[in-house]
């Protein structure tokens, strides 16, 4: 039994859904950020597998760009988390509700 494109897409989408469920379930801001990385990795797997099966390198270039954005997002997001923690002394996302009402 050979591995087809669908296997990789299935793996990528399952990874995306694990990340999505984790983002919705967990209330720790760190965990929510890591779940975003998880979702990006699921998408990356899909990109690379399409690139492999269609013999087109554009997918791999896209993965490079996704990694760039992930690095930028991690830097800015962690700076925001640090500032939030300094001001609010908590990491629970449910307690950050300044803009709720």
């Amino acid at each position: 039994m050979t591995i087809t494109l669908e296997h990789y897409i299935l793996l990528g989408s399952l990874l995306f859904f694990v990340g999505m469920a984790g983002f919705l379930i967990r209330r720790n801001v760190f965990l929510m950020f890591m779940c975003i990385e998880l979702m990006m990795n699921g998408v990356n797997i899909c990109f690379v597998s399409f690139s492999h099966y269609y013999h087109n390198l554009s997918g791999q270039v896209f993965v490079l760009f996704v990694m760039t954005v992930a690095a930028a997002e991690a830097a800015v997001g962690l700076a925001i988390i640090l500032t939030l923690y300094r001001n609010r002394e908590t990491l629970n996302a449910d307690e950050f509700r300044l803009m709720k009402h």
């Binding site: 859904f17 919705l24 379930i25 967990r26 209330r27």
Partner: peptide, 17 residues
């Protein structure tokens, strides 16, 4: 920290599922 691990579990599981 009292972390609500499973506070949003049904919604998350339904939408992801």
């Amino acid at each position: 920290l009292r972390e609500q691990l499973f506070g949003h579990l049904p919604f998350a599981l339904v939408s992801a599922g």
